[in-house]
């Protein structure tokens, strides 16, 4: 590996850097995902896709909180049958595309995962953590035995790496992580369940009332979750939540993450964020005399 290289891997998936586009941000249209890859993302995670078409919630679906963001898009998606073309378009550039899926049962997840694999997805991310839709996401992902069933079923059906994205909206994330131990990697964390009220309208701003908070405000929660799970398990971890600068990437990696997902920061910094963080991270490694980025994974954790 060349000095200052950022090459990373998750299971059998090779990444040119640890910087992945997170699910839910700019990843509904294949051409957009392709542009993200062209402009520096090492991989993209698609919007979460379910078995059937789903409109999602009526706007307002976001509340702009400066660098932070509250959203309740409502798992809007075209349904797995209509998603093949977007994957093909995104894959045109030859970098990894990770298919995110959501369902209510282990069988549904397994079906969606095998479709994603057949479309050419390089890995599958299980959305066990969306905080704002009844019957899906964190409702599924808060039940350790259901999480274990889902991961087992999916692992039995596909060969590409399986990533389990977990919710921070639980008392003990380590027990959920252990339930998902058959996954090739964990993604920690999804958004934090939250709300915003407009005081002049005297009602919640989001049409769904509840949403998920993302951005720098939740980074310390994400870093803590990665640290806890890294200390208690041997699993590969992808850090997610509030990453907008190279310092954030390193903080997550020192807590135990092998790679990171970036989403909300695109709002503030635009598509150039991937190349900017890459450049700054390489500079940091050089100035600190770190030959291999793997050296820093978990560096801050006392096992």
């Amino acid at each position: 590996m060349p000095k200052g290289s950022l090459i990373s891997d998750i299971g059998s998936m090779q990444l040119e850097s640890p910087l992945i586009l997170a699910s839910g941000i700019l990843d509904e249209n294949g051409y957009t995902m392709r542009r993200m890859l062209e402009e520096g993302a090492a991989a993209v995670v698609t919007k979460s896709i379910g078995s059937t078409e789903r409109a999602g919630f009526t706007p307002p679906v976001v509340v702009d909180l400066g660098d932070n963001l509250l959203n309740a898009i409502g798992l809007s998606n075209p349904g797995i049958e209509h998603f093949k073309e977007e994957i093909s378009i995104a894959k045109g550039i030859g970098k990894p595309v990770i298919g995110s899926i959501f369902g209510a049962t282990a069988e549904e997840f397994a079906y969606l995962a095998s479709r994603m694999q057949s479309y050419g997805a390089d890995a599958v991310e299980l959305n066990l953590s969306c905080p704002h839709v009844k019957g899906f996401g964190s409702e599924v992902g808060s039940d350790p035995s259901l999480v274990e069933d889902i991961v087992s079923e999916v692992k039995a059906k596909i060969n590409v790496p399986v990533l389990a994205k977990l919710t921070p909206n639980v008392t003990d994330i380590v027990s959920i992580a252990k339930a998902a131990e058959k996954a090739d990697a964990l993604v920690l964390i999804n958004t934090v369940k939250a709300m915003h009220i407009d005081i002049y309208a005297r009602m919640p701003t989001l049409s769904n009332a509840y949403g998920g908070l993302s951005g720098p405000a939740i980074k310390p929660i994400g870093v803590r979750a990665v640290y806890d799970v890294y200390r208690e398990t041997e699993m590969d971890i992808i850090g997610c939540g509030g990453i907008s600068r190279f310092e954030d990437v390193l903080e997550y990696m020192m807590a135990g993450a092998r790679a990171v997902e970036i989403g909300t920061a695109l709002k503030t910094y635009g598509r150039a964020i991937f190349d900017n963080i890459k450049r700054d991270t390489i500079r940091f490694l050089e100035s600190e005399g770190i030959e291999n980025i793997e050296e820093i994974i978990g560096a801050a954790v006392k096992k």
Binding site: N29, P59, I73, K267, G270
Partner: peptide
């Protein structure tokens, strides 16, 4: 257009966000 701030991808054309 759903979000207006360049995150939801509803209004994109070839990776360019109409809103932004």
């Amino acid at each position: 257009m759903k979000c207006g701030i360049g995150v939801c991808d509803s209004c994109s054309i070839n990776g360019f966000q109409l809103c932004r």
